[in-house]
Simulated assay, not measured.
Amino acid sequence: MPLREAVASLPVADEDRTGYDREESFGTWTDADRDGCNTRAEVLLDEALQAPEMTGRCTLTPGTGRWYSWYDDQYVTSPRDLDVDHMVPLAEAWDSGASAWPRERRVAYANDLADPRHLVAVTKRSNRQKSDRDPAEWMPDEAVHCRYTADWATAKLRYALSADPAEKRTLTELADGCPNAPLTYTPAP
């Protein structure tokens, strides 16, 4: 579906953060394939431009890898300087419909490696600036607004999450200034 149609199809609803507790609601990083690397490490390994050295059971050695943080156009050489960002932050997902899911589905959401747009390695600085904000409140560097808009809409559609009125308005305005490229995704289980 084209970007503008995808954004237009997002249902609008007011947000509700009642009962949200990050760890209680979504758990922590898991090691789904039991290879010793949790979700955070899997994303860092997958997105490395230069693979980092590892010791023990998936301890990434600082200064041995290289990553690109597309939110702020920065190259990073230490995994300690990176966060793994949920494209749609956990609190935003909660506010947008995840609060009604069983905890097992929320933990799966927090650790979803099936779509590479869902979790992204970015600088700690950019991730902390973003925090739990939606596109009406925070955006990455202007050069990547279209990519961010498309990835945000895809994540919301993949999990059938709603958008609040300001978020929907902002996404619509952003999409209107972007190529109307098709978005493809598989609905999450």
Rank of each mutant, 00 (worst) to 15 (best):
M1E: 15
E5M: 14
E5A: 15
V7K: 13
V7E: 14
A8L: 11
A8E: 14
P11Q: 12
P11L: 08
V12M: 12
V12D: 14
A13F: 00
E15N: 14
D16M: 11
R17N: 14
T18V: 14
T18G: 15
G19R: 11
G19A: 13
G19C: 13
D21K: 10
S25D: 06
S25Y: 01
F26P: 05
G27Q: 04
T28K: 14
T28A: 15
T28C: 10
W29F: 15
D31A: 06
A32T: 12
A32M: 06
A32N: 10
G36S: 02
R40A: 02
A41P: 00
L44G: 05
L44H: 06
L45D: 03
L45A: 01
E47G: 05
L49V: 07
Q50I: 10
A51G: 07
P52E: 04
E53H: 10
E53W: 03
G56K: 01
G56A: 04
R57K: 13
T61L: 15
G63F: 05
T64G: 12
G65R: 04
R66D: 01
Y68P: 11
Y68K: 12
W70C: 09
Y71M: 08
D72R: 04
Q74K: 11
V76P: 01
V76T: 04
V76M: 03
S78Q: 02
S78P: 01
D81G: 15
D81Y: 11
L82S: 05
D83H: 10
V84E: 05
D85G: 09
D85E: 11
H86M: 04
H86T: 08
H86Y: 01
M87I: 06
P89N: 01
P89A: 07
L90R: 04
A91N: 05
A91D: 09
E92Q: 13
A93T: 03
D95S: 14
G97A: 11
G97N: 08
G97W: 03
S99Q: 13
S99N: 12
A100Q: 08
A100K: 02
W101L: 12
R103S: 11
E104D: 13
E104I: 03
A108D: 10
Y109Q: 03
A110P: 03
N111W: 01
L113T: 13
L113Y: 09
A114D: 08
A114R: 13
P116H: 00
R117C: 09
H118W: 04
H118S: 13
L119I: 08
L119H: 04
S126W: 00
N127T: 06
N127Y: 06
R128D: 07
Q129S: 15
Q129Y: 08
D134N: 14
D134M: 06
P135T: 07
E137F: 02
E137P: 05
P140L: 05
D141F: 06
E142I: 02
A143Q: 06
V144F: 08
C146G: 09
C146T: 03
C146S: 06
Y148C: 02
T149F: 08
A150F: 02
D151N: 05
A153G: 03
A155S: 12
L157V: 04
L157G: 09
R158W: 00
R158I: 02
A160T: 00
A160K: 00
S162Q: 00
D164E: 12
D164M: 07
A166H: 06
R169G: 10
T170A: 14
T172H: 01
L174A: 10
A175S: 09
C178R: 02
L183E: 03
A188D: 04
P189N: 13
P189H: 08
